[in-house]
Every structure is written in structure tokens, then in C-alpha cells.
């Protein structure tokens, strides 16, 4: 019996430790890490494909925020990306913007309580002639 209790304790502890952290009660799309390497975290079952150094620098001074990682098509040069940056600089809800050219991502930081609307982001990016195809959200 004692052995069974110990086994159950170890198995249950291991299971809990294996589950993703979700501190805010939001959907499964929102996870975050305590290890300072958010780019390694799974989001909605997928790994984030971002430049780790760039991403860590982007989130380094953010708190109580959420980051929308937007996958885009057609952003092949700095000029394309600069138009996107300028567009979102006019959006007062966006706290911070960065672009990962190599991975084809646009990073947008919002306050944690903001409802991010992908369609709105898609339209803003399309105004630059670029297609936004996917959004992943991380809570910081």
C-alpha cells in the first residue's frame, strides 16, 4: 500500500510537471514560460518559429502583455517590413513592434487585457500588399 501511494505520488507529480503552464485561465493558445526562453514554448500545439535572440530581446522589457506572432507571406525585403512597422506604429493598442524577416513573422505586443482581432491585423498587413496567414498569441 505504501509502495502504491509512493508510485501514485511520483506519477501524479510527473504528470502535473509535464503539463503546460496556464496562469490566466485563457484558451490553450496562451502559455508562458518561467525560463526566459519563450520562443521554445509550444503555442496551440506548435513551436514558434522565430529568431530566438530577436524574440528574447523583444519580450525582455515586456510585462503584463501578450505578443501576437503573425506569420506572413510575401515579406521578402526590408522595405516591405518597414511599411508594416509604420502601419502598426499608428495603432495605439500596439505597444511594441518587431519583424523577423528570416522567419516571415511580425511580432506585436499588446496589453494583456486587449482583445486581439486577427482580421484587423490581416487588413493592416494587406494594406502593405502582404498576406497574414496565421496568428499565435503568447502571454508574457
Amino acid at each position: 500500500m505504501k509502495l502504491l501511494m509512493i508510485t501514485l505520488f511520483i506519477v501524479s507529480s510527473w504528470t502535473i510537471a509535464s503539463e503546460p503552464h496556464n496562469h490566466d485561465g485563457h484558451s490553450d493558445m496562451m502559455h508562458h514560460s518561467h525560463e526566459g526562453h519563450l520562443h521554445n514554448e509550444l503555442v496551440d500545439g506548435e513551436k514558434l518559429e522565430v529568431n530566438p535572440d530577436r524574440f528574447d530581446k523583444f519580450v525582455s522589457n515586456l510585462s503584463n502583455a501578450q505578443v501576437a506572432v503573425i506569420s506572413v507571406k510575401g515579406m521578402v525585403c526590408d522595405f516591405c517590413a518597414r511599411g508594416i512597422e509604420k502601419t502598426f506604429q499608428k495603432d495605439k493598442l500596439v505597444k511594441k513592434i518587431d519583424v523577423d524577416l528570416a522567419k516571415g513573422k511580425v511580432l506585436l505586443a499588446y496589453d494583456k487585457d486587449i482583445q486581439i482581432v486577427f482580421e484587423d491585423i490581416q487588413n493592416k498587413i494587406l494594406a502593405n500588399g502582404i498576406n497574414a496567414i496565421k496568428m499565435q498569441i503568447l502571454v508574457i
Binding site: 507571406k73 510575401g74 521578402v76 516591405c80 516571415g104 500588399g129 502582404i130 498576406n131
Partner: peptide, 9 residues
């Protein structure tokens, strides 16, 4: 006409 792909335009 414009065709956007992940790595090309």
C-alpha cells in the same frame, strides 16, 4: 497582379 509566397513575391 501579385503573388505572395512564404519566401518569395
Amino acid at each position: 497582379n501579385r503573388k505572395n509566397n512564404v519566401h518569395s513575391q
